[in-house]
Amino acid sequence: MLLFLDEAQGFNENDYGWLRDVHDVLDRQQIKHISFLVGQEELLAQKPALQFAGKTQIVAHLMVDELALYDIRNAQDIATCLRRLTPAIAW
Score class of each variant (00 low, 15 high):
Glu42Thr: 07
Leu44Pro: 00
Gln51Asp: 09
Ile34Met: 11
Ile31Asp: 01
Leu85Ala: 14
Asp6Leu: 02
Leu69Ser: 08
Ala90Phe: 10
Trp91Gly: 15
Leu67Ala: 13
Asp21Ile: 05
Gly17Cys: 05
Leu85Pro: 03
Ala79Val: 14
Val59Gly: 03
Ile78Ser: 05
Thr86Trp: 15
Pro48His: 06
Glu7Phe: 02
Tyr70Ile: 05
Phe11Leu: 10
Ile89His: 06
Thr80Gly: 08
Ala90Pro: 04
Phe52His: 14
Gln40Pro: 02
Leu82Ala: 15
Leu43Glu: 01
Val59Trp: 05
Gln51Pro: 05
Ala8Lys: 04
Arg28Leu: 08
Ser35Cys: 12
Tyr70Met: 06
Trp91Cys: 09
Leu67Met: 13
Gln46Pro: 04
Val25Ser: 08
Asn12Tyr: 08
Leu3Phe: 13
Leu3Ser: 14
Ile78Ala: 07
Tyr70Arg: 10
Gly10Lys: 12
Gln46Thr: 10
Ile72Val: 11
Ile72His: 04
Ile58Met: 02
Leu69Cys: 09
Gln46Lys: 13
Arg84Met: 15
Ala45Pro: 02
Asp71Arg: 13
Asp6Pro: 02
His61Ala: 13
Ala49Asn: 14
Gln40Thr: 00
Trp91Lys: 12
Leu5Tyr: 00
Trp18Pro: 00
Met63Leu: 06
His61Ile: 05
Gln57Thr: 13
Ile31Lys: 03
Ala53Leu: 10
Leu2Lys: 06
Thr56His: 12
Asp71Gly: 08
Ile72Met: 10
Gln30Glu: 13
Gln57Glu: 11
Gly10Asp: 15
Phe11Met: 12
Phe11Tyr: 10
Gln30Asn: 12
Gly39Asp: 01
Ile34Trp: 07
Ala79Leu: 14
Arg20Ser: 06
Arg28Cys: 06
His61Thr: 11
Thr56Gln: 12
Leu44Ser: 09
Tyr70Ala: 09
Glu13His: 11
Tyr16Ser: 02
Leu62Gly: 03
Leu44Trp: 09
Arg73Gln: 13
Trp91Glu: 13
Leu43Thr: 02
Val22Leu: 08
Leu19Thr: 00
Asn74Glu: 06
His61Glu: 10
Leu37His: 02
Leu3Trp: 07
Asp6His: 06
Glu42Lys: 10
Arg83Tyr: 09
Leu67Ile: 09
Gln57Asp: 11
Gly39Ala: 03
Phe4Glu: 07
Ala68Met: 12
Ala79Gln: 14
Leu19Ile: 06
Val64Ala: 14
Ala45Ile: 10
Leu50Asn: 00
Gln76Arg: 03
Lys47Ser: 01
Ser35Gly: 12
Val59Ala: 02
Gln40Val: 05
Leu67Arg: 12
Leu44Phe: 11
Pro48Asp: 06
Leu26Val: 00
Phe52Glu: 15
Gly39Ser: 06
Gly39Gln: 02
Gln29Asn: 00
Lys32Ala: 10
Gln9Arg: 01
Pro48Thr: 07
Arg84Lys: 14
Ala45Asp: 12
Glu13Lys: 14
Val64Leu: 14
